[in-house]
């Protein structure tokens, strides 16, 4: 309520971008952002003035994401390939279009703990220390997940078969 509380709203676009990449589905991503904003609202008194508000919001989002994963509300591997429909691919050359499609598929098959690190560092451009704080793990864990995550992502994009990761219903 104090007039100098920083504006959470300016961080929404980047929260949305990260959520979109993390859960792979636009509407579920926005649900995650909404949950994040609502929790941030309720917990706002816990945010320390002067600390990085964006990192704090990412931390909240990550915790909600993890809880939802546990609660199975967000399957880490979607059952169908709806990603192409919900993620409007930007205009790009044909080769890049193919790569983008490969990337979307690969991301969905990348285990969540690796996906989060690859996205926080590669897309959101957080420093390794910031990513460690957001994820609540040591920096060394961030580095090893980043290395393995990028390696796995590359293998997936190169067409590595992932039958064991696919859920069967």
């Amino acid at each position: 309520m104090t007039a100098d509380t920083p504006d959470i709203a300016v961080h929404i676009p980047r929260l949305r971008r990260y959520a979109r990449a993390l859960v792979g589905d636009a509407s579920r991503a926005d649900d995650l952002v909404q949950d994040t904003l609502e929790r941030a609202l309720r917990k706002f008194t816990l945010w320390r003035h002067g600390s990085d508000l964006r990192a704090w919001l990412f931390t909240i989002m990550h915790n909600i994401f993890i809880n939802q994963l546990r609660a199975n509300r967000l399957p880490s591997v979607p059952l169908d390939d709806t990603g192409e429909n919900t993620l409007a691919a930007p205009p790009a050359g044909q080769e890049q279009q193919l790569q983008i499609r490969d990337l979307m598929t690969a991301l969905r098959h990348l285990p969540a703990e690796f996906r989060a690190v690859v996205l926080l560092v590669g897309l959101e451009e957080l420093s390794y220390d910031e990513a460690a704080r957001v994820l609540g793990v040591p920096r060394g864990t961030v580095m090893s997940r980043l290395a393995r995550g990028r390696e796995k992502l590359q293998a997936l994009m190169a067409g590595e078969q992932v039958p064991t990761l696919r859920r069967v219903k």
């Binding site: 980047r14 949305r16 971008r17 990449a21 930007p90 790569q99 983008i100 690859v118 897309l123």
Partner: peptide, 17 residues
């Protein structure tokens, strides 16, 4: 390859911004 990953991530998800 990893740099390209980062670029593709941006191409794919920056429109959400």
């Amino acid at each position: 390859a990893y740099r390209q990953q980062n670029q593709l991530l941006h191409s794919l998800f920056d429109p959400a911004l």
